[in-house]
Design a protein around this nucleic acid. Sequence first.
DNA 1: CTAGAATACGAATAAAAAGTCGCATCCGCT
DNA 2: AGCGGATGCGACTTTTTATTCGTATTCTAG
Lengths: 207, 207
Amino acid sequence: MARVRKTVISPRKQPRQARSTRLVGDILEAAARVLVRGGAHRFTTARVAEAAGISVGSLYQYFPNKESILFRLQAQEWEQTMGELRRVLGARSVAPLERLRAAVKMYFRSECDEAAFRSALEEAAPLYREAPESREHAQEGRELMESFVREALPRASARQRAFAADLIGVVISSTGKAISSQNRSRSEVDDLAMGISEMLCSYLETH
Amino acid sequence: MARVRKTVISPRKQPRQARSTRLVGDILEAAARVLVRGGAHRFTTARVAEAAGISVGSLYQYFPNKESILFRLQAQEWEQTMGELRRVLGARSVAPLERLRAAVKMYFRSECDEAAFRSALEEAAPLYREAPESREHAQEGRELMESFVREALPRASARQRAFAADLIGVVISSTGKAISSQNRSRSEVDDLAMGISEMLCSYLETH
DNA sequence: CTAGAATACGAATAAAAAGTCGCATCCGCT
DNA sequence: AGCGGATGCGACTTTTTATTCGTATTCTAG
């Protein structure tokens, strides 16, 4: 039973000159378009190269395989979203529950506005999820939630806080995925954000 | 822009004799094993046939394509889960909120106990999701939630009820998926079920 | 018992896709 | 200018997969 799925993601070679830096950027942009247009199913290196106006050979100079392109796309998205979440949840001048509400609203909106891209990326997740880099992202998310809960529930036990952080994390991330895969209107999404953050806040208030 | 993805799912031919009936059953059992073992990624008709101890040719006598096998697996699972949900949520002798708690617990447990199968099926969803039969399932689910909410919130407006049903449906189904894909222990899952149903119930109580 | 229908078979076909490699071209530096 | 490394190329190889179809076998009705 050798389950040796070694998911290699790290770039094959660093671009040194200006043209190759541009090339890597072009590949990522084109990859996003290809992914949105055809879903994970039709995402092939040949199509990406064609959409970027380059050859497959060039693509493989900087990406060791197809998965690494998808991972880079996901990583960019993750970085941006995490930055915004950190900013919203860490705003000390605002009451914790207000911050949570704002975070949910912001996150749901981003899932809604980029629904096609996010859901396609999610569909492709099995291809890059095994990479160690992906696990780090998950860990980062957990830490963010824990530090938020530490502030929101300063008098709770560590055990209670860990549970609350897990619960909130699961609810937000999973419903967020549902939203991007369901093609909902922005107003529907705002309503859902209201409802869910209300639920989460009243949960926190009673603990 | 021809988006003609005709997802055909309906069986090619009905089994008439006993041996072919058995064969169809064998295929579905083997398919489940293959899916669990290798994920959607490694799910091929050849592997299914081999695991079932038959030939590909026989497989294609009763299934028009690979997707239809996956759909049948999903449909079986759906039928069973919907039956149990209907039973729990429809138990008139129990208070509505109690039923909701029981339903969440039951659903989460089933996701946890069959995690490998459910998450593999979810991974394969893009292959059969487009079929009209799949949309019917979603509709069925929505109707069940609406009829439950009609009972739980008899005095709410139709608009409020529709929103509550949607909210509850989204939260339960999406967190359920998260659970099956995260390989959690049963006690963790029970705790989450408690937390989430508490949230949902307190939401319903204040409306 | 036997004809014809149903079933089972699996080699063969055709399509698609990942990734490589030898060669041509370009860039920056001396 | 001209050298060496960096870059870009794309035809080609290899692997994998879905699905078909002609043939052999098994069942069942009369």
